[in-house]
Amino acid sequence: MTAAETHPDGPRGIEQRRREALERLDRDIDVWVATADADGEPTLVPLAFWWDGGAVWLATRRTNPTGRNLSASGRVRLCFGPTRDVVLMHGTARTLTHEELPAGVGDAFTAKDGWDPRESGPSYVWFQVTPEVVKAWGTVPEMADRDLMRDGKWLVLGD
């Protein structure tokens, strides 16, 4: 697929990319989750997610590398979409048990994904990822203006 096929009208403006990034967060089911351990050993896995309009919710076993890394440092990068229309999010994750989960989160996650981590046993925990940086771009001409959020603040306000 060429850049013209991806975006036939040429590079998208930052307002359009913000709108489309938020649509992707609402629509997509899976995300690539990148973490690292204390020695810098990277881990990259796909996980189901739910976007609540301000944070991304993930669930995985506390004992696997991603769960251990998120619990230890809270640092994470999330990558949504294909390489020609990517949304990259840097954020901080907060770990929650099933009992600590705010009302409605588990049900909304399950409704979107069709899988309920609460039924997968106590080794599964939840991670609330608060975005600090969000970038979106499709092709090289959009890279110069790819920042949509910095320091947890949207650079362009939506409708």
Rank of each mutant, 00 (worst) to 15 (best):
D30M: 12
L44F: 00
D26H: 15
V56I: 15
I29H: 15
P65Y: 09
D52G: 07
D28W: 08
A38K: 07
T35M: 11
V56K: 01
W57E: 00
T35W: 03
A55K: 12
A48F: 14
E41C: 08
T60Q: 06
L47S: 02
G53L: 02
A36T: 09
D37P: 05
A48E: 09
A48V: 13
A38W: 04
T43V: 14
L25E: 00
E41L: 13
W51Q: 00
R27H: 10
L25H: 05
D37W: 10
D37C: 08
L25T: 03
D30E: 14
R61P: 04
W32C: 06
T60W: 00
D39R: 13
R62E: 10
P42S: 09
T60E: 01
D28E: 15
L58K: 01
A59K: 10
G54T: 09
R61D: 03
V45H: 13
W32T: 04
A38M: 03
V31I: 15
D39W: 08
L25N: 03
D28C: 10
P65M: 06
T60L: 03
I29T: 15
R61E: 09
R62G: 04
V45T: 15
F49P: 04
G40S: 05
G53W: 05
A48P: 08
V33I: 06
G54I: 06
E41K: 13
D37F: 14
P46E: 09
A36F: 03
D52T: 08
W57V: 00
W50V: 02
V33E: 01
L25V: 10
R27M: 03
W51A: 02
A55Q: 11
W57G: 01
N64G: 10
L58V: 06
P42E: 11
G40N: 09
P65A: 12
L44C: 15
L58I: 06
W32F: 12
T43E: 11
L44D: 06
V31Y: 00
D26I: 06
T43H: 15
G40H: 09
L44K: 02
T60A: 11
P42H: 12
A48I: 05
V56H: 01
T60M: 04
V31M: 13
A36N: 04
T63M: 12
A55M: 08
A48R: 10
L25W: 08
W57P: 01
T63N: 08
P42M: 11
L44M: 10
F49N: 10
P65T: 13
W32P: 04
L44Q: 13
V56Y: 05
V33H: 03
D26N: 15
A59Q: 07
D52R: 12
P46H: 03
D52L: 09
N64M: 06
G40V: 07
